[in-house]
């Protein structure tokens, strides 16, 4: 899956995007966030405020119980602050 990070999720993780192959047990956004947090201290720090992180799959907002698929583009970011 293609992962995109924005704002402080991006600056904490230290990269804007990456291609990752998640293990089979990762079936939902929540599972994905749990797994990502194990990839290193920078991921754990970025995902520390888990409940505030917004998720978009293929440009659509989804909740944390939404399923994830290997060919998804999944973006993780803080609440938006434009306008």
């Amino acid at each position: 899956m293609k992962l995109l990070y924005f704002a402080w999720v991006r600056t904490n993780i230290g990269k804007a995007e990456e291609e990752l192959v998640a293990p089979d047990h990762v079936q939902t956004v929540e599972g994905l966030l749990d797994w990502l947090a194990t990839l290193g201290p920078q991921y754990a720090a970025a995902l520390d405020r888990r409940n505030v992180i917004k998720v978009a799959i293929n440009h659509e907002y989804v909740e944390h119980d939404h399923p994830v698929r290997p060919d998804d583009e999944i973006a993780l970011f803080p609440p938006v602050t434009g306008g």
Binding site: F6, A7, W8, T11, A56, Y61, A75, F77, P78, P79, V80, T81, G82, G83
Partner: peptide, 22 residues
């Protein structure tokens, strides 16, 4: 727009930079 469009503001101030909180 302010709550749905994916924009984020990074402010630069005297004490460095900080992401604007929603």
């Amino acid at each position: 727009l302010k709550t749905k469009a994916p924009f984020w503001k990074l402010e630069e101030g005297a004490k460095g930079t900080a992401w604007v909180e929603a």
